[in-house]
């Protein structure tokens, strides 16, 4: 990746963070932590990796993205709005009655959202079904999916792991946002996950680990997956910080869903700018 592109993606990530803090602060409460931890990944995906067309959100030849950790929707909405999938003014309606941007992703409401999610574990399963359909059709489109580490407590995640490996879904790339926090505390304390990378590899996936706030490193992992996976589905475990880039809550175990004041938001945005 050239330096100019890296800078441009980092600027995009900053813009997503600011828009996300603004939209959540506008309501006063929201899932800030898990939204901020996937921002750099979203900037890379929408800035470089995904073949998508904001003017044609259901274009058949596009790459798909399933945000299985559906509560991080606000970060994805910011990325989609900045890319022009819908007017930026929509961001101010987040979670308000009648909005097209609900707390958890809804394919019927938001242009650019490929699957409705929110009940954890289901999104990755649906992504498997989408990848299977594209495989049947010999499509060149790929399916990307983002799950949480807390979400990985769900048995359905591991049913999906088996399904994708068995069906050799080489068109599926899944990221685990490993921010090591879940609602009740640190994942190691609430429900230990062990070595996620080794677990996915044991399930027959091409598994890697990458620093999740480094767009160049994530990009390199995706590129490597394309070369090395050889028909296997890919897992990239991203080491992230919950609340990353949000000055008042970065790494705070209480940041899953929290109240945000206008003053906090202003300070956080000033710190980013």
């Amino acid at each position: 990746m050239e330096a100019a592109e890296r800078l441009s993606l980092e600027a995009f990530a900053k813009e997503i963070r600011i828009a996300t803090i603004e939209s959540i602060a506008n309501l006063g409460v929201g899932h800030i932590g898990g939204a901020m931890s996937i921002v750099d990944l979203l900037a890379l995906l929408y800035g470089r990796v995904l073949r998508v067309d904001p003017a044609r959100p259901t274009w058949e030849g596009r790459d798909r993205l399933v945000l299985s950790k559906g509560h991080a929707g606000p970060a994805l909405y910011s990325a989609l709005a900045i890319k022009g999938f819908f007017p930026r003014e929509w961001l101010a309606t987040l979670n308000k009655g009648g909005t097209r941007l609900p707390s958890h992703c809804d394919r019927l409401k938001t242009p650019g959202i490929d699957m409705s999610t929110g009940s954890l574990g289901q999104g990755i399963s649906a992504a498997c079904g989408m990848a299977k359909a594209l495989q049947i059709d010999s499509s060149a489109s790929r399916v990307f999916c983002i799950i949480g580490d807390g979400e990985s407590d769900e048995g359905q995640v591991w049913e999906s792991a088996q399904f994708a490996a068995h069906h050799r879904l080489g068109n599926l790339v899944v990221f685990t946002d490993s921010n090591r926090l879940q609602i009740d505390g640190y994942t190691d304390e609430v429900m230990g996950l062990g070595d996620l990378e080794a677990k996915w590899a044991a399930f027959g996936w091409y598994a890697q680990r990458a620093p999740g706030h480094d767009v160049e490193a994530i990009d390199a992992a995706i590129t490597k997956a394309v070369v090395e996976a050889r028909g296997r589905p890919s897992m990239i475990v991203l080491d992230t910080i919950k609340g990353k880039g949000c000055s008042f809550c970065e790494g705070d175990p209480a940041n899953h869903n929290m109240n945000i004041s206008a003053e906090q938001a202003r300070a956080a945005i000033a710190a980013l700018a």
Partner: peptide
């Protein structure tokens, strides 16, 4: 999908997303 009814329903949904 094997003995995995949750995945049965969600995979079916994913297949439906793609038509």
């Amino acid at each position: 999908v094997g003995v995995a009814e949750a995945t049965l329903a969600s995979v079916a949904a994913g297949l439906s997303v793609e038509g």
